[in-house]
């Protein structure tokens, strides 16, 4: 079983992020790290391949400046190889551009399954997985909290607001997994060292047969038009307790109609 896992490399969430004042896009310079939410998909894929008894996990990523640090982390977990699309023309890509690029990279090899996270930690659109499925003409199952295989079918428990749906889905398919699906492994030093020599194929737009006007800022159908600060939380009310403060609390709760 061969699985492609989409992995996003993002600015380290521990460091304060910066937005470009003109485009309002996140500034992506310097070292990037693997989006933590993708580690679940990588782990899920590794476990599925392991259970299937053969095959490999290929990482698919799009990042500026040929950045591979985040991919090395996923390779250290056990993925076999990676495909990175890096092209200056991809700057300012919206979700759909990203999906077009990832889909084109996925298409180059046959896969039994494409796994993604539910959404990225730096963009939060949550639309890329289904867009990839649409472009590839594959079924999409989102919010998977459990994935098992049954012959050529994936049996998926799909998280919903009130519980979960049980979904059976023909393969190949695009599955987006939630953070609870499996516990990602911690890379061992052996894995980290092995990752050094695993192949990372770097592709440009032309390698994928895409032109610059279809993607990036030029092809984007989505733009951030304005930004404003999140509303600050309003200050609470402080009541000095003179022995009667409980009455104020009850009054307040009555106002909220909770008592």
């Amino acid at each position: 079983m061969n699985i492609a896992v989409c992995v996003k490399q993002i600015p380290d969430p521990a460091a304060p992020g910066r937005l470009d004042p003109n485009t309002f896009n996140l500034v992506r310079e310097g070292k990037l790290v693997m989006d933590d939410s993708d580690s679940y998909g990588v782990e899920m894929a590794l476990q599925l391949v392991d259970r299937a008894g053969g095959g490999e996990v290929t990482l698919i990523s799009m990042a500026p400046n040929g950045e591979t640090s985040g991919l090395r982390t996923a390779l250290a977990m056990g993925a076999a190889k990676a495909v990175l699309v890096s092209d200056p023309a991809l700057g300012g890509s919206d979700a759909l551009s990203t999906a077009k690029v990832l889909a084109a990279a996925i298409l180059r090899n046959p896969f039994d399954m494409v796994i993604t996270a539910t959404e990225s930690t730096d963009g939060y659109t949550g639309t890329v997985p289904v867009q990839i499925a649409e472009i590839l003409g594959l079924p999409a199952v989102s919010f998977a909290k459990k994935v098992t295989l049954d012959g050529n079918k994936a049996m998926i428990e799909r998280q919903s607001e009130s519980g979960y749906d049980e979904v059976a889905c023909e393969l190949p398919a695009v599955v987006s997994v939630t953070a609870g699906v499996v516990e990602p492994r911690y890379p061992s030093f052996k894995g980290i060292m092995a990752a050094k020599s695993k192949p990372i194929e770097t592709l440009s737009l032309s390698d994928l047969g895409l032109s610059a006007d279809q993607v990036g800022a030029a092809g984007a159908r989505e733009a951030i038009v304005s930004l404003r600060k999140a509303e600050a939380r309003q200050a609470g009310q402080i009541i000095e307790d003179d022995g009667e403060a409980f009455a104020k609390i009850i009054e307040y709760l009555e106002q909220l109609k909770v008592v």
Binding site: R72, T73, I192, M193
Partner: peptide, 13 residues
């Protein structure tokens, strides 16, 4: 870089 990765992995763990 690999030793640094080892540190990150152990710290996160």
């Amino acid at each position: 870089e690999e030793q640094q990765e080892l540190r990150n992995s152990v710290r996160r763990f």
